[in-house]
């Protein structure tokens, strides 16, 4: 338990360095060490998706990733993706469509949605539902979330054509 190591990584564009225990999960590191409480803890075994964050451009479960695995990597969380504007379209669509209720799943849901929007611009409703199948939402029943993401995809497709 006493063994610790120094971890240096880039979080939301800023280089940070901390001493961590090897057993510390990325989500606990982000929340407890860096105070980035936007990403949430839901199940702690990789099922619910509430802790979804981005590591070197790929979405990961913060509860299945050890902080020490992120040495030298770039981690993006909902806070950084909000400030950079990368999530702005999705956030607006979620807001207008009421695609969130309690909001606890929302940061993970948005990061997962952004991944789809960027990687599959032609995704159908079925693909949206499939892609989000690792993100649990108990409030909405998912339809509003699917609608909001579809709205963004349609909008971006129109923009791309224009």
């Amino acid at each position: 338990m006493d063994h610790t190591s120094t971890l240096t990584l880039t979080v939301n564009g800023t280089k940070v360095s901390r001493t961590v225990q090897p057993r510390t999960h990325l989500i606990d590191f982000l929340r407890d060490e860096l105070g980035l409480t936007g990403s949430h803890i839901g199940c702690e075994h990789g099922v619910c998706g509430a802790c979804t964050v981005r590591v070197d451009g790929t979405i990961v479960r913060g509860c299945l990733t050890l902080a020490v695995q992120c040495e030298g990597k770039a981690v993006d969380t909902v806070e950084g993706l909000s400030d950079s504007g990368e999530l702005a379209q999705l956030q607006q669509a979620f807001h207008e469509r009421n695609a969130l209720q309690c909001g606890y799943c929302t940061p993970g849901m948005l990061v997962a949605a952004l991944d789809l929007v960027k990687s599959e611009p032609d995704a159908t409703r079925e693909r949206i539902r499939e892609h989000l199948s690792g993100n649990y939402c108990r409030c909405t029943g998912y339809q509003a979330i699917v609608d909001a993401i579809e709205t963004v995809l349609v909008h971006r497709r129109k923009e791309a054509r224009a």
């Binding site: 409480t37 806070e79 956030q91 979620f94 807001h95 969130l100 909001g103």
Partner: peptide, 21 residues
């Protein structure tokens, strides 16, 4: 009308109990 209070949740700026310091 969209809910005004949803905006903070969309940016991960909510205050759930475990977020309090």
């Amino acid at each position: 009308e969209p809910r005004a209070n949803a905006k903070r949740l969309l940016q991960g700026r909510g205050s759930f109990i475990d977020d309090l310091r």
